[in-house]
Amino acid sequence: MNSARLLLFIFFPVITYAQDDLLSQLEKQDSTRSFPVEATFKSTRVVNGQSVETMKKKHLDFRISHRFGRLNSGAYQFFGLDQATMRMGFEYGVTDRLEVGVGRSTSQKVYDFFAKYKLIEQTTGGRTIPVSVTVFGGTGIATVNRELVFQNKLYYTGQVLIARKFGEKLSLQLSPTWLFRNHPEVTGDEKILLALGIGGRYKLSKRVSLNGEYFYTAREKNTVTAPYHDSMSFGVDIETGGHVFQLHFTNSLGMIEKQFIGETSGTWSKGDIHYGFNISRTFSFDKKNKRAAKEKI
């Protein structure tokens, strides 16, 4: 027999053993761990609608959002920029999964309150969970009409947000929505409205993403009792350090679920498009943060 081949055959087990170096041993030990998928969306909103993201524990998000008038209102109204409606809100992470928030919209003078809980977090690695699921519940008081009794100023929203981050760039979300108005704006409109939202984002660069969102409402569009259309929005997210700027075009004027899902009166085809933006600024109230800043490592 060829002696060289015999030697190779005999020492083959030794050679393979040597190749199994220290680093791959560490890798093998670590192979069962799984990691949460971070940053499915850059902020707690896709455009108008809630995203699966919640604020982390002891972190506060201060949000200012504006929507301007309709682009088709012409040069006299400076293409809508003469009118502005805004919402100011605070969102706080009680735990890494639970967030609570309050807001005030100028439109219909609404105070809104909500909670979001991250039920399931998408993970990669040893144990893979394909999607993130967050539940959202909110209520609001529309104080614009002083004649109404208190109960009739209230509305409620429930959402199950299901999202998946497909690789680094693409994230998609489904948002089944239940909306209940104690006293709909138009007499004769149904109190209950069901809707299905679909939204997503595509990262153009590390700090800029393209976002889009559409809410399909389970009702006849543009009727006498419900003169409304489905909400559709497109925008960009620009992230700079602690701020996220969301600039967008939408046919909805409102920034809370009751308004943009339930009461969108404009349509894209007629040019009833509003320019708008959200500015989000995050603050950390974690005491460890301050301590860490002082300490030397």
Binding site: L23, Q25, E27
Partner: peptide
């Protein structure tokens, strides 16, 4: 040999 997961780095500011 030393090995660490980047995602195991914990920052006070998330």
């Amino acid at each position: 040999a030393i090995r660490m997961n980047m995602r195991d780095f914990v920052f006070p500011n998330k």
